[in-house]
């Protein structure tokens, strides 16, 4: 009875909280639109920020999926994405076209993510936060080492997936790259969302993450669902890596390190357990970082990660459940 009462209360709270959040988002979107209409540089930066933000959001979503499934924050998520991007580079070297390599890479990422969960995470999952964190930290170092060992640290270059043309929208010229990035990431995120929302497998994955014991009782193979969750996260990460590469124009082992921090900030901003929050958080971080660096003078691009850090800590202190987090149960 108490449980039912509290959950009712929670749903009421979230129902009243959502309008506040959506008002905030609406205001932000309006601001961006007005700004874009008045200044073409602002418009270009907004498009660029949204594209970068979608990459952050995609990696943040990967983190959230992993966190929901296994209550582990995967510090190696970014390095995993970096490694799969190298795989794509290698495939292209071997003669595949960009988009063939893209597809094969996603498949490899899925297998990799699944195997890593089974081999490395399952043994420490129920141990302690620190143990799980350190295993992912070890994985971070290991992946870094493998990439360095196999491919070296020299810069690599990939063909541009979207060509070099620019669009002309009402006098604002926009590189094809940014809308391309945005759409590819958006499509992947929507596919993953549809998988979770509309398929039996997705339902079982959600159930396994929410209530593993009860899920097993209805016949769901919980361990497998969690492993598949890691696989999907690796796929989203791979998309993020592949789309981050053209925005930086080079491929190097540190590709994803700052992006991981932005993704952490995005995931926390959206609420660590909220997939939609992660994506919206990513977009918000992407747009605001891009605009702030341009328009707020003391803050240069060197300060992007410190600003993301400030956002992260600020959100954690002011509203630890994030914009979309529903409940924050703190176990003492």
């Amino acid at each position: 009875m108490v449980a039912a009462a509290t959950s009712r209360l929670e749903s009421l709270c979230s129902r009243t909280a959502v309008p506040a959040t959506s008002l905030l988002l609406l205001a932000g979107a309006t601001g961006l639109l007005v700004g874009s209409l008045r200044s073409s540089i602002f418009a270009q930066l907004t498009v660029q920020g949204l594209a970068l933000g979608s990459v952050y959001g995609s990696l943040a979503l990967a983190l959230v999926l992993v966190y929901r499934a296994t209550h582990v924050v995967n510090f190696a998520q970014g390095e995993l994405a970096m490694a799969t991007t190298y795989v794509a580079w290698q495939l292209i070297q071997w003669g595949l076209s960009y988009w063939e390599a893209f597809a094969v890479t996603l498949a490899i990422a899925f297998v990799l993510g699944t195997v890593l969960q089974v081999v490395l995470i399952r043994p420490v999952q129920h141990r302690s936060v620190i143990a799980a964190v350190i295993v992912t930290v070890g994985l971070f170092i290991l992946i870094d080492g493998v990439v360095d060992w196999v491919w070296g640290s020299a810069l690599k270059f990939m063909p541009s997936p979207f060509g070099t043309k620019t669009y002309d929208v009402g006098g604002v010229s926009i590189s094809r790259l940014y809308p391309g990035m945005f759409l590819v990431v958006l499509a992947s995120v929507l596919l993953v969302w549809a998988l979770f929302r509309f398929t039996k497998l997705g339902l079982a994955m959600r159930a396994a993450a929410l209530r593993p014991a009860e899920s097993a009782l209805v016949g769901v193979r919980v361990d497998w669902m969690l492993a598949i969750g890691w696989g999907l996260a690796a796929v989203l990460g791979a998309v993020a890596g592949l789309m981050a590469e053209p925005s930086q124009f080079v491929l190097q082992p540190t590709l994803m390190q700052p992006i991981l921090v932005y993704a952490f900030a995005a995931a926390v901003l959206g609420g660590l357990e909220s997939p939609a929050g992660a994506v919206i958080g990513g977009l918000a971080i992407g747009v605001s970082l891009t605009l702030v660096v341009q328009y707020v003078h003391p803050i240069t691009s060197d300060l992007q990660t410190p600003v993301a850090f400030a956002v992260l800590v600020g959100v954690l202190l002011l509203k630890p459940s994030g914009l979309f987090g529903q409940r924050e149960v703190r176990r003492v």
Partner: peptide, 18 residues
């Protein structure tokens, strides 16, 4: 005000930022 995973995230960001 942070614990567990959240503290890990915040301190990681600190390590990248400084």
């Amino acid at each position: 005000r942070l614990s567990g995973v959240y503290l890990a995230l915040a301190t990681f960001a600190l390590a990248v930022s400084v």
